[in-house]
Design a protein around this nucleic acid. Structure first.
Lengths: 335, 335
DNA sequence: CTGAAAGCGCTTACAG
DNA sequence: CTGAAAGCGCTTACAG
C-alpha cells in the first residue's frame, strides 16, 4: 500500500520547503517562485502523481466545497433528474454534491441535516418535508446557506426556487374547461406543503364558486397511494355526477391513476380528459398523447445552485425568492 | 455569523484540556475521565450545540468515511434506484456517498475518479464505461478499494457484483421459444461491455446454431437510441422473415421499442411477443402485462456496499466476484 | 484521573 | 526569491 504523495514528499525531493511547493502548485502566478524551481516542482509533482488532499484544504479554509442535496427520494425520477442537474451545475463551480433521501419524513430530514453538517457542507439544497419548519428555522439561525427547491414555507423568510403552482394549476384546469369539460376532478396529496395547497387552490379558483364542490377534490396520503388512488378515482368517476376530466396533481399520482383508469377501461381522452402535473418518460409511453403541466426542471435546479453558491460566497446577499412558470404541453415535449 | 463550536471552546468553558474533551465526546468508555468532569463536558457540549467536525477527523484518521458512486447517469431510474439503496446501506455503516455521472464516457469517468480521489473517498462503487479499463487498472495499482457493479471486465481481476447475464438472456429466449415463437429478434446496445456481450451470447445460444442468424441481432449505439431503435425494429418486423418475438436487452431499449411498436399498431403479445431485460415503473403502465428479466437490484446494490466496506476495512481480503441470478417475471412483480 | 505534545496535509501572513 | 511558523479541529500515544 503506497502512501499517497503529499507536499512534504515533493518538498523533500525538490530540496525546498513545503511552503514553496504549495505556492507553486496552487498556481498563484504572483507567488514569486523562480521559474527554475517552479518547473522542477511541477515535474516532481507529476512524476509522483501528486493529488492535493481536499480534506486538508477544507480544514484549512473552513470551506468543504461541498453542497448537501436533500430530496424526498433519489430513486424517484423527478428528484433524480434534479440531482443530475445539480450535480452538473455544481461541478462547474468545483463543488461536490452529497445527497440524501428524506422519504418525506421530517425526522429523516433532520438527521440528514445533522449528518451533512458534520460533514461540513457549505450549504444545502432542500426539498422540505411536511413539518420540517423547525429545522429550516434552525439553519437560518445558524446562518447556514440554503435554498429550498420545489416547495417552501410561506411563513419562513428563506431562499427558494419553485414553480408558480397556483398559476400552473389554474391554467391547467382552465384548459380542461375550454375543451368543454364541466366537472373537473382533482387527485392530490393530502399534505400541508404549500406547493400542493397552491395547486389545489388554483384548480378550485379556475372552476369558480358556482361549479366547485368539495367532492371534486380527492386527497390521498403519501404513504398509501397505491391503495387510495383507485378509491379516489372511483369517487370521481362512479358517483351520481361523474367527472368529465381529472387533473392529477403530480407525476406519480398520474402514473398510478392512469394505470387504474386503464383497468376501468376508461379511454383517455375520449371518456375522460386528463392533465398531469409534471411530465415523465412514463407518459411518453401511454397509448395517446397526454397534456401536462411541464415544470422547467432544468431551470429550477440550475437556479437553485446559482442561488445557493451566491449565498455561500456572499452571506449577506438578500434572499432570493424565485418562482418559475410551468407550461402546458400537449403531447410529449421531447417530440 | 456565529463560529461553530469546537473542542477548544468546550475545553475552555469546562476548564479542562482539549484532549479530555475529546476523550469524553468520542465515547471511549475506558477513557478514565471522572464521571463528574465527563458529565460537565457533555452538558456544555449539548448547550453549545457541538457538532464534531468530520473533516478534521478525516484528516487525522486518513479515512473520510465517504464512498464514491460512479454511475452512467443518476437521472436514469435504474441507476437512481441503485443510488438510493447504496445511500441507505452506506448510511447504516456511517458512510456518506458522493455520486457522479459518467454518461458512459470514459473521459468523464476518469475525471470523476480523480475528482473524488482528491475528496479522499475511501473507496468506489463503479459502473464502468466502455474503454475505462485503464482507469480501473490504475485504481488497482494504487490499492484503492473499489467494486464494479452491473458490469465488469473479464480481463481484469477485480471485485464485482453483477447479474448472470448470460443465463438471464438464455432463459428469456428459451421462454419465448417455449411459448411457440420461432424467430426471436434481439435489440441490444452496440458496445464491448461484457454485460451486453453476455446477454447477446445467451440469446444466440438459446436459439442454437440451426436457427440463429445475424439478422436477428440488432445493435444500436448508446448515443443514437431514439433514432436507431425504430430502424432496428423495422429490420426485425418488416423484412421477408418477420420475427415472432423480440427480446429487448435493457429497460431503456424496451421503453422506446415498445413505444414504437405501439406506433406500428403491433399488439403485444398478440402480434409479437416481447421480453424486456429489467423492470421499471414504466412497464407497469403498459396496456398489457409484460414479461421481464427482473434483476435483483436491491441485492445487487447492497452486496456492492458490503463488498466495498469489507475491502476498505481489510485491504488484503481476497477479491469478491459475485454473480446474482435474475428472474423471469410475468406481469408486474409489485402486484 | 488529566494534560502537553505531535501530527494529519495544507495555506498564508511574515520575515529575511 | 524562499522558508519557518502558526493554525484549521481533531486524535492518540505518552507522561505524570
Amino acid at each position: 500500500m503506497k502512501k499517497k504523495t503529499s507536499l512534504k514528499d515533493i518538498a523533500k525531493e525538490a530540496g525546498v520547503s513545503i511552503a514553496t511547493v504549495s505556492y507553486v502548485l496552487s498556481k498563484q502566478e504572483n507567488s514569486g517562485v523562480s521559474q527554475e524551481v517552479s518547473d522542477r516542482i511541477k515535474d516532481i509533482a507529476k512524476r509522483l502523481n501528486y493529488r492535493p488532499n481536499q480534506i486538508a484544504k477544507s480544514l484549512q479554509s473552513g470551506k468543504s466545497q461541498t453542497v448537501g442535496l436533500i430530496v424526498a427520494d433519489i430513486s424517484n425520477p423527478f428528484f433524480a433528474q434534479i440531482a443530475r442537474i445539480v450535480e452538473d451545475e455544481a461541478k462547474k463551480y468545483g463543488y461536490t454534491v452529497i445527497f440524501g433521501s428524506s422519504d418525506e419524513k421530517a425526522t429523516k430530514s433532520h438527521d440528514l441535516i445533522k449528518f451533512l453538517l458534520n460533514r461540513q457542507v457549505d450549504g444545502f439544497i432542500i426539498t422540505p418535508t411536511e413539518g420540517s419548519e423547525g429545522q429550516i428555522e434552525l439553519l437560518k439561525e445558524q446562518n447556514i446557506p440554503f435554498v429550498l427547491i420545489d416547495r417552501y414555507f410561506p411563513s419562513i423568510d428563506t431562499n427558494y426556487v419553485a414553480i408558480d403552482n397556483y398559476k400552473a394549476a389554474f391554467d391547467a384546469t382552465k384548459k380542461l374547461m375550454e375543451n368543454g369539460n364541466k366537472r373537473i376532478g382533482m387527485v392530490a396529496y393530502s399534505t400541508e406543503l404549500n406547493h400542493m395547497k397552491e395547486r389545489i387552490q388554483g384548480h378550485k379558483d379556475a372552476l369558480g364558486k358556482g361549479i366547485y364542490d368539495e367532492s371534486l377534490l380527492q386527497e390521498v396520503a403519501f404513504e398509501r397511494i397505491v391503495e387510495n388512488i383507485p378509491k379516489a378515482i372511483n369517487n370521481l368517476v362512479k358517483g351520481n355526477e361523474p367527472v368529465d376530466a381529472i387533473f392529477f396533481a403530480t407525476n406519480t399520482l398520474g402514473v398510478i391513476g392512469l394505470k387504474y383508469l386503464n383497468e376501468l377501461k376508461l379511454q383517455v381522452p375520449d371518456d375522460i380528459a386528463v392533465i398531469v402535473f409534471d411530465e415523465s418518460e412514463v407518459f411518453h409511453f401511454f397509448y395517446c398523447p397526454l397534456t401536462y403541466v411541464k415544470q422547467p426542471l432544468s431551470d429550477l435546479a440550475k437556479k437553485a445552485v446559482t442561488v445557493l453558491l451566491n449565498h455561500i460566497k456572499n452571506p449577506n446577499a438578500k434572499l432570493d425568492k424565485v418562482k418559475l412558470n410551468a407550461q402546458l404541453v400537449i403531447g410529449n415535449s421531447s417530440n
